[in-house]
Simulated assay, not measured.
Amino acid sequence: MTTVRNVARGVQSFTSNAFLVDGNRTVLVDAGSNFDAVGRIGDTVDELDAVVLTHTHPDHVGNAELIVDAFDVDVWGFDAEHDLVDHGIADGDDVLIGDDRYDVLHTPGHKNDHVCLYSSAGGTLFAGDLVFANGGFGRTDLEEGDHVALIESIEYLLSVVSDTLSTMYVGHGPTVDADPKYHIELALHAARMSA
């Protein structure tokens, strides 16, 4: 059975959430930054099979090199040209995370290489910094930010996820485990209102 733990939980420094997904394939979704991720992963599992990135902003990848060195793993991400990425993943691909296969959804707007990872069978979404709890959405005032593209990406995400979505893991803040699709709809409304 798949278990998901946020190894960045309780960290007070600037970091993203970093989700350790234990199962048939033990994967870290986003590496976080500015904390002892290697120690926290090692306290939980003996081996790590891969790191999958939602995008390459520093708060999501700052620990990546140390994790790669410690666990001898490859990194998967949308931008195959990025120094940290060993294997490119594209919209429509799927990746095994824990016990489930996740569809890769290219969702730019916050950053060009942003992806969401969605398992229909598992009822689970890794949303990165596209959307957050209570209608929050990713900022678009950073390099590669594009508010129109962000709105289109949220629309795309809503067109793909089903009503069986039960858990949404986000890049910052709390996990959404009560009606996550509603939170995505709120984010779309809020993003449109602020356009």
Rank of each mutant, 00 (worst) to 15 (best):
T3L: 14
V7H: 04
Q12F: 11
F14D: 14
S16D: 11
G23H: 13
N24T: 06
T26C: 15
V27D: 04
D30G: 02
G32A: 04
F35L: 01
T44K: 06
L48E: 03
V51I: 15
V51W: 05
V52D: 01
G62Y: 12
G62A: 12
A64M: 00
A64H: 02
L66R: 14
L66V: 00
I67R: 09
D69S: 15
A70H: 08
A70W: 05
D72W: 02
D74R: 14
F78K: 13
A80Q: 12
A80P: 03
H87A: 00
G88R: 07
I97H: 00
D100L: 02
D103H: 05
L105F: 05
H106L: 04
T107W: 03
G109C: 03
K111S: 07
N112V: 09
N112F: 15
C116L: 05
L117E: 02
S119Y: 00
T124M: 04
F126Q: 01
F126V: 09
R139H: 12
D141Y: 12
D141G: 11
L142E: 13
E143N: 10
D146A: 10
H147R: 06
L157M: 06
S159E: 15
D163G: 02
T164K: 13
G171L: 10
P174K: 02
D177M: 03
H183S: 10
A187G: 08
H189W: 11
A190F: 15
